[in-house]
Design a protein around this nucleic acid. Structure first.
Lengths: 268, 268
DNA sequence: TCATGTGAAGGAATTCACAGCC
DNA sequence: GGCTGTGAATTCCTTCACATGA
């Protein structure tokens, strides 16, 4: 009977599935569907109905027994739970082909993710002007095409060395890292020193959540590692996906039954 | 004492970690390190030494008790296990900004992944010529920079409708899908109808591993679903990573202890 | 009667401790 | 002695069955 049901931490895979459910709910909303059920969501998400209900139960009670879920209501709740009803200021470090593709990618500008700065070290890129899509309005889920709302924001690529002063004038929540793997650690270090607390790493390498020893003995850092406290790193490495695909094509019988998919890259 | 130890299917997360170990071994090899240990690998992979040993044990016995692992030997074994010692012919469907970034991405051309065809439906893209990096030599791990071996392969973007005849003349193992989400299912269908058995899906949507009903009632497909048999789909969705990052930045206490990372997108 | 929400059962993956072998 | 390889224990995630409530 207690109103608290923040029992235990949800499995990380459950968070990924929540993102999928949210996307499906948005599709249903666009299709004009008013209500749905755990079974219907399960089919489109390629999981079991049990799984859907359990996943939702980690975060609250959103349905009506005997009826199911109201699409709009559940969409709104999941948006809130995932932290997608607030705005996130994002910088991209590394504006090569991948960084530019990310900057223009339509889906990223939904949900109030907005690019506020673009950075690189290559002289030929610095000063270049890029039009990035801006986030949709805060209030409306928008019946119209989500990909077309908002207008472009014009940004100039700056040198990474300006990152620190940039974040003093302009709050930055996340940094997207799209630099070559050999520069990923130092670029991440620059982000952290600039006070950025979230890193989405596209490079095929793991970011070490600490200041490299070389930098420590070189400079006079007083509180080592402290700047990395509370920094979240999430990895998006398509080479891992590519190699996993190769493995499972070669050995299809190696597919374990449980949790065939869902979840990101990185490590505990 | 039996020489068989292909006991049970490894966790899918173990496969992702194997990819990480392999990358670390390549780094160690470039650094000139001859031998290593589960502890050393664990530190760089951000997992426990137990985990490293258990993961390796799923696939064989590669170390020497009391000594550790020979870097070159373990690298070669993991390369074989992951199916990266054979060549993979890849086509890209969707040559917008993301597709072009993928086509030029240096890491993909390692390990004998080679692009053999590029496809799109937009008239302004068809006929455009793209230089893609080619795979490194089969035999050598190459002491020199892995990213610089091989020369460019010149490819012309073709219309997706030519996919079927293309695969009859040229074997294709994998298709990389970089089209907008609303076209992902039909593009995947085109790949499958052309006989492609592996799909790496970059679109933020789940591919349904079956022919849509609309196509079934329209055309006279005799054996429904059969063309999807043995097709592997792997998802790489950076929007999921982005939203996961938002969630964990908002609720850091929601980090479950186990398997904080590692694993792809999709579902069971 | 319907479909959700949830404690309990079951199964999988990780962690551990130690046996086995340089 | 040192580090791997591996059965056993533990922890976690998923599946299930049913109580709950519209």
């Amino acid at each position: 009977m207690s109103s608290l049901h923040t029992l235990s931490a949800p499995p990380t895979a459950a968070v990924s599935r929540l993102v999928t459910y949210l996307r499906i709910l948005e599709e249903l909303e666009r299709e004009g569907t008013l209500t749905t059920s755990s079974g219907a969501l399960a089919e489109r998400a390629q999981v079991s109905a049990f799984q859907v209900r359990k996943d939702l139960a980690y975060f609250g009670r959103f349905g009506t027994r005997g009826l199911g879920y109201t699409v709009t209501l559940l969409r709104r709740e999941l948006t809130r739970v995932l932290g997608l009803n607030r705005s996130w200021n994002v910088v991209i470090v590394g504006m090569g082909r991948l960084g530019q593709a990310i900057a223009h990618y339509p889906g990223a500008s939904e949900y109030l993710f907005g690019y506020v700065g673009l950075f690189d070290v290559r002289p030929e890129l610095i000063g270049q002007v890029i039009d990035t899509p801006t986030g949709r309005e805060a209030s409306r889920p928008s019946q119209t095409d989500l990909h077309q709302t908002g207008e472009a924001r014009r940004l100039t690529i700056q040198h990474v060395s300006e990152l620190r002063t940039f974040t003093q004038a302009q709050p930055v929540d996340m940094g997207f890292l799209a630099v070559p793997p050999e520069h990923a650690q130092s670029a991440a270090q620059s982000l952290v020193e600039a006070g950025v607390k979230g890193i989405l790493n596209f490079a095929p390498t793991l970011i070490q959540p600490r200041t490299p020893e070389s930098a420590v003995q070189a400079g006079g850092l007083q509180e080592i590692g402290d700047e990395w406290r509370d920094v979240m790193v999430e990895n998006v490495d398509f080479l891992v996906g590519m190699k996993r695909l190769a493995f499972y094509m070669l050995s299809p019988q190696m597919l374990s039954s449980q949790s065939k998919d869902h979840d990101p890259e990185g490590h505990p």
